[in-house]
Amino acid sequence: MVYPSVGICSLAVSFPSVRRTKDYYKEKYPEIVAQVEQKSFAKMISLDNCKPSNEFELEMMPYLSDPFRGTVEQRILAPGESSLTLEYCAAKNAIEAAKLSANDVDLLLVASFLPEQVGFGNAAFLARQLGLQCGAWNLDASCASTPIALQTACALVQAGIHRNALVAISCTYSRFFDKDDTLSWFFSDGAGAFLVSSLKPNQGILGTKTVNTSILCDQFSFKLTEDEQGNQQFRMQVPKGTNKAIGETAADLLLTCCEGAIAAAGVTLEQIDFFIFNTPTAWFASFCTRVLGIDPERTINVYPLYANIGPALTVANLYHAAHLDKIRENDLVLIYGFGAASSASASVMRWGDVALGSAPNNGSDSTMKNSETRSIISC
């Protein structure tokens, strides 16, 4: 059966207004920085033994001398900002970039990690802000939400059920860590959005492969606590063995999904022009290129700009690659994302004439170009 050509027609990103560098922590928490190797962040990203035991740990090794483990900058929510405000900005820009109106959107898929309220996702609230009349669904695949949402939206448009599906992805980790917790150095906030519609013949999504990540179910959790004023708050819990568990499983997940998507698309690894990985650590892109045996010039790494923004990383990498002309119309692009206690997923698509929303006003592309010349980010 021949399916119609469907894929991304517009793409946008949105980031909060607070930009935080390593100097913030050095100036505000000098005692913690001095003792960082005894703190939670360093314990999570470390080696039990001196020698690495897998590709993930090999690529991690150069960053262990950096107390920030390669984190350079973060984007943090300011008062009045939220996952909804970020999603709204990205979604609005994606609609406008596609030269469509709210009435043209006939499905909204939203993946918020995590939504603003307990018990309800952001989808209906975002639909209200955008003035949409269509269905609004919440989707959860943790840090794999971008490829999973893309796969879902493309399938529904290919089936003829919908014409223009809007996808919004956000991550607001800063809400779930105390500022003096060194784990907060690793996490950040951001959002992205894209419209999925019909494209020119032979463009759009060509093949996918998704597997579950139940093997990582015990690595992240949330705990309800109280602050000093007695207000209840959620705090993310990350056990010491998380880094090791990810390192031992990451290569198999990457290979299974990428090789499966390439086979489903009927192409070869060598034919892929560009690779987009979610980059939750400073070395994840290098890890992926090592495992797949590809030239590092065939991918991009926005971790130095944004740190770990969860599912929004895949959108951010995709946006910056397109904005820097690393991806051009009719290029074969593979995207990959994985999330603990969820799924790992890869998709191969032939890039269309994708309209981009306005660039983040933070000099990010020039920073991106400069960061590409540095294989190791020092402290």
Rank of each mutant, 00 (worst) to 15 (best):
F15G: 00
R19G: 09
K26Q: 09
K26W: 06
E27T: 14
E31K: 11
A34K: 14
Q35E: 14
N49W: 11
S53W: 08
R75Y: 06
G80W: 00
T85G: 00
E87N: 09
C89G: 06
A91R: 08
V110Y: 01
A111D: 07
A111H: 08
L114Y: 09
V118I: 15
A123V: 05
A124L: 09
F125Q: 09
A127E: 04
L132F: 13
S145M: 08
P147F: 13
I148L: 10
L150T: 10
A153I: 06
A159V: 08
N164D: 14
A165L: 11
I169E: 10
C171E: 14
C171P: 13
S174K: 05
D178A: 07
K179G: 09
D180Q: 08
F187V: 11
D189L: 00
G190E: 06
A191L: 02
S198V: 10
G204K: 04
K209H: 15
S214C: 13
D218H: 03
F220M: 06
N231Y: 11
T242C: 05
T242G: 04
N243Y: 12
K244F: 10
K244I: 12
A263K: 15
A264N: 15
V267P: 03
T268L: 10
E270R: 12
E270G: 10
N278F: 14
A285E: 02
S286C: 07
C288G: 12
T289G: 00
I300S: 05
Y306K: 04
N308G: 07
H323Y: 13
K326L: 15
L332K: 08
V348H: 03
G352I: 12
S358F: 05
G363A: 08
T367E: 09
T367P: 07
K369A: 12
S371M: 09
